[in-house]
Structures are given as C-alpha cells and as structure tokens.
Amino acid sequence: MSRFKIANIIAYGFVTLFSIYVLMPILVMVLTTFKSKREIFLEPLGIPSQFGISSFEKALSVGLGSFMLNSFIVSFFAVFLIVTISGMAAYVLSRIDFKINKFVYLLIVAGFAIPPAAVLVPLYTMVSNLNLLNSLFGVIMPLTAFGIPFTVILFYAFFLDFPKEVEEAATIDGCTKLQIFFRIIVPLSGPVIASAAIFQTVWIWNEFLLALIMLTSDDFKTLPIGLLKLRGEWTSDWGAIMAGLTIAVIPVLIVFLIFQKYFVRSLAGLGK
C-alpha cells in the first residue's frame, strides 16, 4: 500500500513541477508588465507594488494594434483558403479512382516535408518579381500553399472513415461529385473543419520566417515580426516589452482555452 502512495506522490509531484516550469515564464511576463523599472531591477522575484498601465501605453505606441490587425487579415484569408482547397482535394483523393491519385498524394506528402527555409531564396525572388513584397496578399498566398499539405492529410484520414451510403444514394439521384461535396460532405464535416481551421490559425498567426523576409514595412508587419520592434524600440525597458507580449499572447491563450478540445484532437490525430 505504501509503495502505491509513494508512486502517487512522485506522479503528482512530477506533473506539478512541470506545470510550474510551464507557468512560471507566463507569470514573469504578466508581473513584469506591472512592475516599475526600479522593481524590475531590484526585485526580479518580487511582486509589483502597484498595477500601473504605463507599460501598456508604451507597448501600444510601437503599433501593436496594426500588427494585430494585419495578423488577423492574413490568418483569416489564408485559413479560409487552406481549409476550402484542402477539403476539396482530400475528398477527390479519398473517393475517386484517378490513376494519378497515388502520385498526387506523394506530392502532397513531399510538400508537407519541405520547410519554407529550404525554398527561401526563389520564393523571395518570385514574390519580389510579382511586386508583392510588403503586401498582405504576397504573404497570404505562400502561407496558404504551405498549409495545404498537412490539412489534406488530416481531411483525407477523416473522409476515409466517412460512411459512403449517403453519397451512393445521392449519386443515384443524379448528383455530381461537385454537388455531393458541397451539399452533403461539407455540412457533415464540422469537427474536422474546426480542427483544421484552429490548427492552421495558430500556425499562421505565429508564422515568422516568410513574414520576416516579405514584410519589411511597418504598415504590413504581422504580430510576430512586429514584436521584434518592441525590443528595438524599448531596448532595456522590460516592462514595455513584456506588456507588448502580454497583449499579443493573452488573446491567443483565451482562444486556445475555449477551443482546446478541437486543437488537441487535430494534433493527436497526427499519430494515427
């Protein structure tokens, strides 16, 4: 019996310690936001004596509002395109006996493996030649492309398990595949659409490398690139930097807490 108790204490102790390791930096971020400069230097481990908001004003002065708006626009359009285009392609791959299907699926998997860093120079040259540097459209298009392979794989697994009887009935009634997809499949795919959309939203909201090379003007920067400006502007004013991070991070955390079920499901599906 006592052996079980010791095992139990070790188990709870381990997850508790790990949770503290995870929560501590977030706590430091929020507390530093409210501390005075003096407190930040003299009492790194202390709690702020008052809850001032001057740090927030400094952080917002670098343009966080507009960075956030840009991130919102980029995420919204890219995620919409990714989910629509991937769903359509995955449906064809899972339902229609095309000779090229196997080849297309291999291409998709290859696309999943290729990281943006491996195609950085030609991609930059292409977007530059199209005169799309420093435009949200110019970053939405490649981000959409890089989001498609993973989402196709996610939808493909879902459609394979999807009962075929309804579609067969619809085919007998004379519906084309196009009609079946939009009228029958899409309305019944809520959970997988939610999983895909949430996963891609988080990925695109946080994407750094492509945005870094393509968006150099402040008017078009997305949040991850804009956050670097905090450090440039308020070099050692940690209160302002942490205030900016708090503004950027807390909304994402709230969205995550609301939708975490779908998010965890889409990631867990990767292992299957």
Binding site: L81, I85, S86, M88, A89, Y91, V92, L93, F98, V104, L107, I108, G111, I114, A118, V119, P122, L123, M126, M141, P142, T144, A145, F146, I148, P149, V152, K177, L178, F181
Partner: peptide, 18 residues
C-alpha cells in the same frame, strides 16, 4: 475542379521554388 486549386498552390509556391 476540386483537385486543381491545391495542386496549383503547391506547385507555384512549393515545388517550383524547390
């Protein structure tokens, strides 16, 4: 019609740059 958009996107922004 359903398959082509995915292929176009991946070709232009992943495979051609590769």
């Amino acid at each position: 019609i359903l398959l082509v958009p995915a292929l176009i996107f991946c070709t232009i922004f992943i495979f051609i740059p590769a």
